[in-house]
Amino acid sequence: MEPIIATQDLKKVFRLGKVQVPALRGVDLIVQEGEFLAVVGPSGCGKSTLLHILGGLTNPTSGHVLVDGNDFITMNDADRTRFRRHKIGFVFQRFNLLPTLTARQNIAIAQHIQGNGFNPHRFDAVADMLGIREKLNHKPFAMSGGEQQRVAIARAVICEPKILLADEPTGNLDTENSQIVLNMLRALNRSFRQTILMITHNPEAAAVADRVVRMRDGRVVSD
């Protein structure tokens, strides 16, 4: 079966003035559809950069990266944006909800950007599964961290993305809420075969994944 994510000798170098800072030094990674993968490693090892490249937020310096059959190296910014709109869902450590919108509007805007219009059945199903029905008319400042993260997950999966990319989704949560969020990610993966790639520092969080990949100094050191 064709992997949903395949990277080969993936490199990313940032330029800070005249200094070149390598963030990824040749990452080889294969992720199968429906897999729940955790990427762990110390700060600065390149986890977030890898996630940003796989989500089409930034382009690699060299190497190959195929995501759902699309070669990012050959895609321009507009193509990657379109790809992200239809195939990727993001969950961030800081929730990243739009502060002026309610939970309902934060979720609905993803559907609006995708352009397929509001799907009430999908919306209800996601809201029920994540247990946020009571909070739909609340704005982010009126919700707890755990509730905000559940809304962020709802927003990420509302358009049925091929891949869910989660960047330290429990990093800003207490133990109880962390467990709730992890259970939800696990449930999404099990119930809908949602492919999830999660970055985390937390070994307990990584433990819920099917597979754990360790990174150090811009490389995968164990798989």
Binding site: G55, L57, A78, T81, R82, R84, R85, H86, I88, F90, F92, N96, L97, L98, P99, I109, A110, I113, Q114, R155
Partner: peptide, 16 residues
């Protein structure tokens, strides 16, 4: 700026 980044992460185009 951050909100614009969020919209971009959701796939919002430049035109949007």
């Amino acid at each position: 700026t951050r909100e614009i980044g969020i919209l971009k992460s959701l796939g919002a185009s430049k035109t949007y």
